[in-house]
């Protein structure tokens, strides 16, 4: 197809999918453990890991140019800032 496309293999994606399935199982299993307030952070951590697998491999961000990677980084920084600054309000009411 395009010369600059990376050669893609079925097997890689199947491994990634397997990892995602296992992580789904882990997140469900872990939910029954009582982490208290940390529970939501554990769940989010696993979700973040899962989504970075999807973004890096399925959306092949890891093969994209530095420009696109920087753009994605900007997005997450901006979103983190939005949430972060909003939380200068609620916990301090």
């Amino acid at each position: 197809m395009h010369e600059n496309e990376h050669e893609m293999k079925y097997s890689t994606y199947i491994y990634v999918w397997l990892a995602l399935v296992v992580l789904t199982w882990v997140t469900v299993a872990v939910a029954s453990i009582d982490f208290g307030n940390a529970a939501v952070f554990v769940a989010l951590l696993i979700a973040a890991f899962k989504s970075s697998l999807v973004v890096a491999w399925f959306m092949h961000l890891k093969n994209e140019s530095a420009t696109i990677k920087w753009m994605v980084a900007t997005l997450f920084i901006v979103f983190a800032i939005f949430i972060g600054i909003t939380f200068t309000d609620y916990p301090f009411r």
């Binding site: 789904t24 997140t27 469900v28 939910a31 529970a39 939501v40 769940a43 989010l44 696993i46 979700a47 899962k50 989504s51 999807v54």
Partner: peptide, 9 residues
């Protein structure tokens, strides 16, 4: 992937 734990777990 985020909605699932946030609402179900």
């Amino acid at each position: 992937i985020f909605l699932f734990p946030l609402f179900y777990l």
